[in-house]
Amino acid sequence: MRKLMNVKTALLFGLVVAGLSMFGAANKVEARPNFKNIWADTYPDSKMLISKKCGICHPGKSKKEKSDYAEAVFEALGKKRKATDKDMIVKALKAAEMKPSSVEGKTYGDLIKADEMPPSKKSE
């Protein structure tokens, strides 16, 4: 009887640990979903988000790869790169608009208004 009790306890403990680890992992699926939503709110007339989604800032297959535009936004955020505050992110997006892109004579804001993907100097 005692052996059966130990098996049940071990099984229950294992299920609890597995459930908690799955619950904890669910919070880490999307690191910063606010950036995409706030970008859509800041530029509601842009059709770029529909076609490119996260590709505006992450042109490659990996989310670790960032475009020059994303680097300009992160530079504007400063040390608060993991920001979740909407006002702070909007300020960074607006600051990045003013920065010159790799297209001569155009800022990132000009390209966004024209629904053109901001090119990356890295890809040239």
Score class of each variant (00 low, 15 high):
1 M>S: 13
1 M>F: 11
4 L>F: 12
5 M>G: 08
6 N>P: 05
9 T>R: 07
10 A>F: 08
11 L>K: 03
11 L>R: 05
12 L>Y: 09
12 L>Q: 08
13 F>C: 13
14 G>T: 12
14 G>M: 11
15 L>W: 06
16 V>A: 10
16 V>P: 03
17 V>P: 01
17 V>I: 14
19 G>Q: 03
21 S>G: 10
22 M>L: 13
22 M>C: 09
22 M>Q: 11
23 F>P: 01
23 F>A: 14
24 G>T: 13
25 A>D: 09
25 A>N: 14
26 A>T: 11
27 N>Y: 13
29 V>M: 06
31 A>P: 06
31 A>C: 09
32 R>I: 07
32 R>G: 02
32 R>S: 09
34 N>Y: 07
36 K>A: 12
38 I>L: 03
39 W>E: 03
40 A>S: 13
40 A>C: 10
40 A>N: 09
41 D>L: 08
42 T>F: 00
43 Y>C: 02
43 Y>A: 01
45 D>S: 14
46 S>C: 08
46 S>T: 10
50 I>E: 10
51 S>A: 09
56 I>E: 00
57 C>I: 03
58 H>E: 06
59 P>D: 00
59 P>T: 00
61 K>Q: 10
63 K>I: 12
64 K>N: 10
66 K>P: 03
67 S>C: 05
69 Y>T: 04
69 Y>N: 02
71 E>T: 07
71 E>M: 06
74 F>C: 07
74 F>N: 14
76 A>D: 04
76 A>W: 02
76 A>L: 03
78 G>P: 05
78 G>T: 07
79 K>Y: 05
80 K>G: 06
81 R>Q: 15
81 R>K: 15
82 K>R: 14
85 D>K: 02
85 D>I: 01
87 D>I: 05
87 D>N: 08
88 M>I: 11
90 V>E: 01
92 A>L: 04
92 A>N: 02
94 K>C: 05
98 M>A: 14
99 K>F: 03
101 S>M: 04
103 V>H: 07
104 E>G: 05
105 G>L: 06
105 G>T: 05
106 K>L: 09
108 Y>G: 00
110 D>K: 03
112 I>V: 15
113 K>Q: 15
114 A>K: 14
115 D>T: 13
116 E>H: 09
118 P>Q: 02
118 P>G: 03
120 S>I: 02
122 K>G: 11
